[in-house]
Amino acid sequence: MSQDASLRIIAAGPGTTLQDGGRHFYLRYGITAAGPMDALAHATANLAVGNISDATAIEVTLGGIEVTADGAPLTLAVAGGAFAVTLDGRALPPGALILTLEPGATFRIRAGESGAWCYLAVAGRIKVPPVLGSNATHTRTNFGGIDGRALRAGDVLRVEPPDIAAVPLGVIAAPWLDRPPGIIRVVLGPQDDYFAQDQIAAFRDGPWTVSTKADRMAFFIDGPTLTHAKGYNILSDGIAMGAIQVPGNGRPIVLMADRQSTGGYPKIATVIGPDLGRLAQARAGTSFRFEIVSVEQAVAARRAEADVLARGIVIEPLVRTQFSSEFLLGLNLIDGVVAR
C-alpha cells in the first residue's frame, strides 16, 4: 500500500524547474510548450523508475540540488550530463543512477565534469496543479510547476508513489546519453532562401561556440557573422524548437524549450530533434559545427533514438566488488537488499 510521501527541496540552484513532456496543443494561442531541454535524458530517468517517459521530473541545472524524502521512501533516478551525486555525503559512481531514498536521507546532485542539465525523476506522480494539461514550468509567463516559478529551498513536492518495492542502488545503462557535441545536425529552412550560398556554407562550417548567454529560451552562439540576402524582417511565423534565427546583427540564436511560439527573424535552419539534447548539454565555451542533413536522415536518427528507449532500460545493481563493504553497509545495501 502506498503511503503519503514527499520530496523536500533542501537547496536548489537557480533555474531548477519541474518539467514534463511539455504543454502541447496551445502553441496556436501563444503558449510556449516548455518541457525538458534534453528530452532523451528526461525520458531515460522517468523510464528507469517505471514512469511514463514524459512524466513530471525535476530539471537540475549547473547550480545542483539537494533533496530528502519525507514520510516514506522514494525511488529516484538521475540521468543527464555527467553530474556528481552523493547520498548522505558519500560519493556515488558517476553517470545515470537509480536508488531508493529513505526518509531523512539526503541526496545531492552537483555539476560534474560535463553537461549542463540532468533530470531527477521520482517513481510515481509528482502532484502539482496542471496548467492547460501540463506541469511543465515556463517561468517567463509563470505557467506550470509550483506557481510557475523555479524550485527553491523549502519546497515540498507531494508524491503519489507506486506500489513497487524499494530498489537497490543501481547504475542505469544509458550509453546513449554520452553525446559529445562536436557536430550538430540541422535541416535547412524554413527561411534559408534569405541567405546566399556562401552564407549557408559559413553557417555550416562555423566553427561555433556556445556563448555564456545560453538558457532555457535560447542559445546564443559565437562564430562567423552572417549576412542576409534580402533583409532580416519577415512576417512573424511559427517557431519550432531548435529553430536557428538570424537577427539583424547576423549572430545566430538557437531557440530552445522556452522559445516564443512565433517570431519575426529569418530562420536559416533547424536543429534536428535527436541533436537538441546534445546541444543543450554543451556548456559555454564548447565548440561545434553544423552538418546539414535531409529530413529523411533526421527521421532515421529520430527512429534510432526511439528504438533505443523502446528496448527498455537496463539497470545494473551495484555489487559488493565495486564498493567496500563499509560503504555498502553505510548505505544499508548489502547484496542489493534494502534493510528496513
Binding site: 540541422v186 535541416v187 535547412l188 529552412g189 524554413p190 527561411q191 519577415i234 512576417l235 511565423d237 511559427g238 517557431i239 519550432a240 524548437m241 531548435g242 529553430a243 530562420k267 533547424t270 536543429v271 534536428i272 530533434g273 529530413v295 533526421a298 527521421v299 529520430r302
Partner: peptide
C-alpha cells in the same frame, strides 16, 4: 518549407 523533421510550414504568401 521544413522547420526541422517535426514541423512543416505551409506558406501562402509573404504579406
Amino acid at each position: 518549407l521544413d522547420a526541422g523533421e517535426t514541423a512543416l510550414v505551409v506558406e501562402f504568401g509573404d504579406v
